[in-house]
C-alpha cells in the first residue's frame, strides 16, 4: 500500500523534474533553432545561457524584482548574441570560432563579474526567486497535479514559446524569410529582402531565448549564480536541437527526453533499491550524446538547413 503511494508520488515528481530540467534545454534549443534556421551556426548557446543566468541574478540582486532579472537576462543574452551576429554576419567571420570565443568570453566575464559584484569566487548571494505559479484546478489531480500544478512561470512560458516558435517559423512571412535565409539566401536576396538583417535578427533572438534559459536556471530553479553553473547544458541544448531535427516540437521532445534522463539520476540516488546504479550515473549522463551520434550516423536522417555555416556574400551585380 505504502509502496504504491510512494510510486505515485515518485512518478509525479519524476514528471515534474523532467519539466524542470528540460526547460532551460528547450529554451536554449529554441534559441539555437532561430539562429540555425537563418543559417548561422551558434555553438555559443552555453555562453549566452551563462551570461543570461548572471544578469538575471545581478539585476534581481539590485532591483529585488525577479521579473526585471528575467528581462535583464533576455537583453544580456541578446547583446552577447549580437556580438556573434556582428562577427558572423557583418564581418563574415568563422561562425564556429566565434561561437567558441563567445563561450570562453562568457565564462571568464561572468566569473570575473561575480567577484566584482559580490566579492566571491564561486557563488553569488541568494536573491529573490520567481514565485511559483499554482494552478488550482489541476493541482489536486494525483500525478499531473504534482507535475504541472505548481511550477515556475518560465516552465509555462517555455511551453507557450514552443508553440509560438512553431507558428512564427512556419506560418508567418517573417518565418518564411528565416527559412529562406537558411535554405537559399540568394533567392531571398533576389526577392529584395536583406539576408544580413534576417540573420542578425535570428541570431539575436537565439541569444534572447538562451538568456531566458539561463535566467530560469539562475532565479527560478536555483536562486543564485554559481561559477559555470550551466555545466554543459548549452551543448545538450544543441544536441536536443539536432536530435529534434531542427523543429520546435522536436526540440521540445528531445529536450524533455534529456531532462528526464537528468531527473532519473536523482531518482536513482534516493531509491535504495536502485542505489547499486549510483556507480553508473556517468553512463546515464552519456545517453543524450550517444543518441545524437547514433541519430546522425543514420538511424534517422536529420536535415540541417542547407546554407548553414556559410556566410552569405552578396553577388556583385553588373
Amino acid at each position: 500500500m505504502q509502496d504504491i503511494q510512494t510510486l505515485v508520488a515518485l512518478t509525479g515528481w519524476l514528471l515534474k523534474a523532467t519539466l524542470m530540467m528540460s526547460t532551460p534545454l528547450v529554451l536554449a534549443a529554441l534559441g539555437g533553432l532561430f539562429s540555425e534556421k537563418t543559417g548561422i551556426v551558434n555553438i555559443g548557446l552555453e555562453g549566452m545561457m551563462l551570461i543570461g543566468a548572471f544578469s538575471a541574478v545581478a539585476a534581481t540582486y539590485f532591483t529585488d524584482n525577479p521579473w526585471l532579472g528575467v528581462l535583464a537576462a533576455v537583453i544580456a543574452g541578446g547583446m552577447l548574441a549580437s556580438i556573434h551576429a556582428i562577427v558572423c554576419v557583418k564581418y563574415k567571420g568563422n561562425q564556429i570560432v566565434s561561437g567558441a570565443g563567445i563561450i570562453l568570453f562568457a565564462g571568464g566575464f561572468t566569473t570575473l563579474m561575480l567577484e566584482v559584484v559580490w566579492g566571491v569566487k564561486g557563488v553569488s548571494d541568494s536573491v529573490t526567486r520567481l514565485p511559483n505559479v499554482v494552478i488550482e484546478p489541476i493541482s489536486d489531480i494525483p500525478i499531473l497535479g504534482v507535475a504541472l500544478g505548481a511550477q515556475s512561470p518560465l516552465v509555462y512560458i517555455m511551453l507557450i514559446l514552443v508553440v509560438v516558435s512553431w507558428f512564427v517559423i512556419y506560418k508567418t512571412p517573417f518565418g518564411l524569410r528565416i527559412q529562406a535565409a537558411g535554405e537559399d539566401p540568394s533567392a531571398l536576396d533576389a526577392a529584395g529582402v536583406s539576408v544580413s538583417s534576417v540573420r542578425m535578427i535570428g541570431v539575436v533572438l537565439s541569444g534572447c531565448l538562451s538568456g531566458l534559459g539561463g535566467a530560469y536556471l539562475a532565479i527560478s530553479y536555483a536562486s543564485e549564480f554559481g561559477k559555470m553553473m550551466t555545466v554543459g547544458r548549452g551543448f545538450i541544448a544543441l544536441a536536443a536541437l539536432i536530435f529534434g531535427n531542427w523543429t520546435p516540437f522536436g526540440c521540445l521532445i528531445a529536450g524533455a527526453l534529456f531532462g528526464f534522463l537528468d531527473g532519473l539520476q536523482f531518482a536513482i540516488s534516493i531509491l535504495p533499491e536502485f542505489s547499486f546504479m549510483l556507480e553508473y550515473v556517468n553512463f546515464i549522463k552519456m545517453i543524450p550524446y550517444v543518441l545524437v551520434i547514433v541519430a546522425l550516423a543514420g538511424i534517422r536522417k536529420s536535415v540541417p538547413p542547407k546554407a548553414i555555416g556559410t556566410p552569405y556574400e552578396k553577388e556583385a551585380r553588373g
Binding site: 556580438i83 556582428i86 562577427v87 558572423c88 564581418y91 563574415k92 567571420g93 568563422n94 561562425q95 570560432v97 566565434s98 567558441a100 570565443g101 563567445i102 563561450i103 570562453l104 568570453f105 562568457a106 565564462g107 571568464g108 566575464f109 566569473t111 570575473l112 567577484e115 569566487k121
Partner: peptide, 22 residues
Amino acid sequence: VPIEIVGLIQGLVVIFVAAPRI
C-alpha cells in the same frame, strides 16, 4: 586579480580572430 582574466583575454582573442575584417 582573478585568474579568469586570462579566460576573458582568450575569448576576446578568438572572437577577434574569427573576424579578420575587424
